[in-house]
Design a binder for these strands. Structure first.
Length: 826
RNA sequence: GCAGGGAUAGCGAAGUGGUCAAACGCGCGGGACUCAAGAUCCCGUCUCUCAGUGAGUUCGGAGGUUCGAAUCCUCCUCCCUGCACCA
């Protein structure tokens, strides 16, 4: 019988589904929550990267399930988003249709990968019974003062026709359109006060021991916590709090720089300088981001600040290199000890004053070629002169505090999360504007605020703006005429808590049941791409903390995910990322058509460590296919015998290694060991060996192993016994002595064969082989005489002879080489 | 510039002090089977050597530690991935 993977795969997928074996409920067993980042159901369907992602997760879920855990392994769709809306505009249709078609297609494709999801828990972001709770969370945040509406300079993507959050701007470009510059617009927008959690988000990173180092570093950089001092500078009778991490250099301040984007810039620009400043602003606005080339520029504002310690008058410049919304948007410039300030001072010929000197050199302000940014001893610093700079930072700060001239401060780079989007296909923001009452949140009992279905999308303009039925409402407070907010929420809002809804996906009364969530959470392993390091992976931590503080968890859950795993990218045969434009895309379907999905699964995770990028290789997959066919054929012919001590011994080692490897997601290593073990299987072995081999392979190749398992047990086809639900094998004690013996014999056979080959070339015949060995080895050889004879395949006699001095094993210092037997042929 | 991760035979990729000329897969070469091709199986695949299981030169480069280094240390080169004026 041929290996008919198509019918085998279909058969088992149907059986699993029919028997609902992957559907789970809270029970007394230990739980394990495996999750992949939920996909946006794009119209182009499932690509190899998706498949790779899900296969990695499925292997883990199957493994944990067999290990006896109660495994939650759900799937759902992040189905709000721009692509569906844009497609709908093109077709003058509704994005719901596109989305739901795409989801159907996605599910079909995912099922054909043999993934063991609990489909009964599926959730979709665009369904009102899901986004209702997005709105509910919004209201809760509103109650707690974590939502606000503010006019601010915001990032706007002209292609998306909407504003974006900071996290969604990458190097000045839109995250969806890496070739499109974002524009800055002043608009009234809704924000989530994620900065309220900045400190915990930052400090907790160190507790994420199961996260990859690089992701943690990226998040730390993004949140950007820094300790420093706010120093009060007087400017035109007003106090400006200027943040610095180097209060020790306060005596070296020779000028101040205010950000060109500062909202209160013109407060300090004098009449005389107004025109010059305006000209400057115009100039830097017209220079493109790439052209800036880090050239520091500025002009004098006409105003002076008073240094609170030296009482010096310090000129204030407006500069292009100061960030407006970090700290106070104004910096104290210490050109001798800050490279940026140094460059600025050089350019505009401003004084440079050295106030920190290292012990091994002496800087001279005239001869300095760059700023000295390290620590040293203070000079020219009044009564602080002579102090070490790290000490001076503390002492000067304390002094300023005592005099009421400053305070300790911590600053973050993290900004509040802009969540309003001027697009249709998202969660409506549950807010009503009333002329009398102002901003009024929609009462909880009126949720969800549903997106209307009978609209026509024709332009990128949000159709809600023209949808009277949607806009025109009564004010919940005064019952007077009012109007709804037409902006919708950022798609990342939907994905910030979906993993909690999986724990209780059909709850109609509450967002989720406390007990259920407390049983399943946190996610034990979360699998997805690294590109979300500073987007989704920050947002969902924030949400988890907020919902915790709302009291929605029964136990302490501070972080959503214990272990984070970033899989590598799948590249095409040409080594570049698979993409339509390159024409190197290979779809998972093509592969399962040709070789079956078990082969594709095996290949994808065996080519390299799943965390590395992999390159598709048509020849490579043939190798995986060959291996699976070999297994199939082996099981057709294998004789089932009694106890097989030797193989069981190897099995024990294999179980131990494979279990460890899978646990660490070193799937490639696990497969190496499985293959090795398979190669050593004899023609006849015990049922135990065969069963355990199938179990080890099962997470990788679930269909064929189920099929063989069934045959092995001669089940009738209606049997409900699934290999998927069997227990993961436990490694017995490994008999090292036996292993050594085997290696010895293997080596011997290899040597004999080598010599045979030489003799064959010379057309000489062999009748007898003498093996000279130590007494211990002799015993082993005699015991295995039949086996050796059989392996050599020739009808010859083998004699094992003790001979003391036939060779003289070298004396190694620590470990001796295994002694090789000497051979003699006759 | 800063941070994180890499560099192993034709390619992919194991190996983190001795059993390492380095698993496994692919590719390549040879053989068996076949009318033939494919599939399958066997052998080989750094260099030299072959009445012998040997020798030589290798694991990005240069040094060092050690009886012994792909593996440990130092320096260098190159590659990838993030962040880049956050005061």
């Amino acid at each position: 019988m041929e290996y008919n993977f198509k019918s085998i795969e279909k058969k088992w997928q149907n059986k699993w589904e029919k028997a609902k074996i992957f559907e789970v409920k809270k029970n007394k067993k230990r739980k394990y929550y495996v999750l992949e980042m939920w996909p946006y159901p794009s119209a182009s369907g499932l690509h190899m990267g998706h498949a790779f992602n899900y296969i990695i997760g499925d292997i883990y879920a199957r493994f944990k399930r067999m290990q006896g855990f109660n495994v939650l392994y759900p799937m759902g769709y992040d189905s709000f988003g721009l692509p569906a809306e844009n497609a709908a505009i093109k077709a003058k249709s509704h994005p719901k249709k596109f989305t739901e078609d795409a989801i159907r297609n996605f599910i079909k494709q995912q099922k054909s990968l043999g993934l063991s999801y609990d489909w009964s828990r599926m959730i979709e972001a665009h369904k009102p019974d899901y986004y209702k709770w997005d709105q509910w969370i919004f209201l809760k945040m509103f109650e707690k003062g974590l939502v606000y509406r503010k006019e601010a300079p915001v990032n706007f993507c002209p292609k998306c026709n909407t504003v974006l959050a900071n996290e969604q701007v990458h190097n000045g470009k839109c995250w969806r359109h890496e070739d499109t510059d974002v524009e800055i617009k002043y608009l009234k927008q809704w924000f989530f006060k994620i900065t309220a959690y900045a400190d915990e988000l930052y400090e907790n990173i160190d507790t994420l021991t199961g996260w990859p180092e690089d992701v943690k570093v990226m998040q730390k950089n993004w949140i950007g916590k820094s300790y420093g001092t706010e120093i009060f500078f007087e400017v035109n009778g007003e106090t400006w709090n200027v943040f610095t991490t180097r209060p020790d250099t306060i005596y070296g301040v020779t000028f101040m720089v205010i950000s060109a984007q500062h909202p209160e810039l013109f407060k300090i620009v004098t009449k005389k300088q107004k025109e010059k400043v305006k000209e400057f602003l115009k100039k830097i606005k017209s220079t493109k981001k790439e052209d800036v080339e880090k050239e520091k520029e500025g002009v004098f504002t006409g105003s002076y600040a008073l240094n609170p310690l030296t009482k010096e008058k310090i000129p204030i410049y407006v500069g292009n290199f100061v960030v407006a919304d970090y700290g106070s948007g104004m910096v104290m410039a210490v050109p001798a000890h800050d490279q940026r300030d140094f460059e600025f001072a050089k350019k505009y010929n401003l004084p440079i004053k050295v106030v920190v000197q290292p012990s091994n050199a002496k800087f001279n302000q005239e001869k300095m070629e760059k700023a000295y940014e390290e620590d040293g001893k203070l000079v020219n610093s009044g009564k602080f002169t002579g102090m070490e700079s790290n000490k001076a930072r503390v002492v000067i700060t304390e002094f300023l505090i005592r005099k009421g001239l400053g305070k300790k401060a911590i600053n973050y780079k993290l900004k509040d999360w802009l969540i309003s989007r001027q697009r249709f296909w998202g969660t409506p923001i549950p807010i009503i504007y009333c002329n009398k009452c102002g901003i009024v949140p929609v009462p909880e009992k009126e949720l969800p605020v549903k997106l209307p279905e009978n609209i026509k999308l024709t332009t990128r303009e949000n159709p809600l703006k023209k949808c009277k039925k949607f806009i025109e409402v009564k004010c919940p407070k005064c019952k007077g005429k009012a109007r709804r907010e037409t902006d919708t929420m950022d798609t990342f809002v939907n994905s910030s808590w979906y993993f909690l809804r999986y724990c209780d996906p059909r709850n109609k009364k509450e967002i989720f049941n406390k007990k259920k969530v407390s049983y399943w959470m946190p996610i034990d392993i979360y699998i997805g791409g690294k590109e979300h390091a500073c987007m989704h992976l920050i947002y969902f931590r924030f949400y988890t903390k907020f919902l915790r503080d709302l009291g929605l968890f029964e136990k302490k859950i501070d972080e959503p995910v214990i272990n984070l795993f970033n899989q590598g990218m799948v590249h095409g045969e040409d080594g570049t990322v698979m993409s339509k434009s390159r024409g190197n895309v290979i779809l998972p379907e093509e592969i399962s058509d040709k070789y079956g999905i078990d082969t594709a699964r095996l290949f994808l995770v065996s080519i390299a460590s799943p965390k590395k990028d992999i390159q598709w290789n048509e020849e490579g997959i043939k190798g995986a296919f060959k291996f699976i066919k070999k297994i199939f054929n082996y099981f057709k012919s294998v004789k089932i015998g009694e106890v097989d001590e030797k193989t069981e011994n190897k099995l024990n080692g294999t179980i131990k290694n494979v279990t460890n490897n899978i646990e660490n997601l070193d799937y490639n290593l696990a497969i190496i060991k499985i293959r090795k073990f398979f190669d050593s299987l004899p023609e006849e072995t015990s049922k135990n060996v065969l069963e355990n081999f199938l179990k080890l392979l099962h997470p990788f190749c679930p269909h064929i192993t189920e099929e063989i398992w069934e045959k092995l047990h001669k089940h009738n086809s209606n049997s409900t016994k699934f290999l998927s639900l069997e227990k993961w094998p436990k490694a017995g004690k490994i008999n090292e002595k036996l292993l050594k013996e085997e290696k010895l014999i293997e080596k011997l056979i290899e040597d004999i064969n080598n010599i045979f080959n030489i003799l064959k070339k010379k057309e000489e015949k062999v009748k007898k082989i003498y093996i000279y060995s130590t007494p211990n080895e002799k015993k082993i050889f005699i015991n295995n005489k039949d086996l050796i004879n059989k392996k050599i395949g020739l009808d010859i006699e083998i004699f094992a002879v003790n001979e003391k001095n036939i060779y003289d094993p070298k004396n190694f210092a620590k470990k001796a080489k295994p002694e090789k037997p000497a051979l003699y042929f006759e």
